[in-house]
């Protein structure tokens, strides 16, 4: 959702063409719905102007690109904020109403809380080089194995959150510059 913070010329051109395309298609759809020939002309105009600027003078789109990116960042932030709160205040609270399965009680002094455990097979551990299975499968497997079926319904929310990641969004110096000398 977020574009490169400092765009190369090709990105400015791409932004202009994408903007023109989207604006043109949107207005054309409205024109088709309203059967308005004027709006069809407007759609052509809306597509042609940014498209032409993108081809002829991409640098002229720098300001619009920046404004769009700032708006996208805010929208992204708002969407993530809402998604996380919905996850917590709707799903977790609803599931929490059923109470806890964790049985806590006093242990008589004569008894011990020691629970013997066996070892796990090597396949139970994640690979040290980071080649872990996809997190969605891991979460689904855990939910099924532990009978926390409710957690499966969080998967779409978490997947949305992962799509809405804030990449390329910081104006800081990029990492790994050291590698270049």
């Amino acid at each position: 959702m977020i574009l490169l913070w400092r765009p190369r010329e090709a990105w400015l051109a791409g932004f202009g063409m994408a903007g023109g395309l989207c604006a043109g298609v949107t207005i054309a759809l409205v024109a088709w719905a309203l059967r308005s020939p004027w709006l069809i002309a407007g759609a052509v105009f809306a597509a042609a102007v940014p498209g032409s600027v993108a081809v002829l003078r991409p640098q002229a789109l720098n300001r619009w690109y920046g404004l769009w990116n700032r708006a996208a960042r805010r929208m992204l932030w708002a969407t993530r904020w809402l998604l996380m709160r919905v996850c917590f205040y709707v799903t977790f609270v609803a599931v929490g109403w059923t109470g806890s399965r964790l049985a806590l009680g006093r242990v008589p002094q004569s008894e011990s809380c020691w629970v013997p455990r066996g070892t796990l097979s090597p396949s139970a551990y994640g690979s040290p080089d980071g080649a872990l299975e996809h997190w969605t499968r891991g979460l689904a497997a855990w939910a099924m194995a532990s009978k926390n079926y409710w957690a499966l319904f969080l998967l779409p929310m978490f997947m949305l959150l992962s799509i809405l990641k804030v990449e390329d969004s910081t104006p800081e110096v990029p990492p790994n510059l050291y590698a270049l000398f």
Binding site: L3, A18, L76
Partner: peptide, 18 residues
Amino acid sequence: ALPFWIVAWFTRVLATWR
């Protein structure tokens, strides 16, 4: 948020193409 996502996607595709 959808329009932002669509514009970003098209921008990436077109920039890579250029």
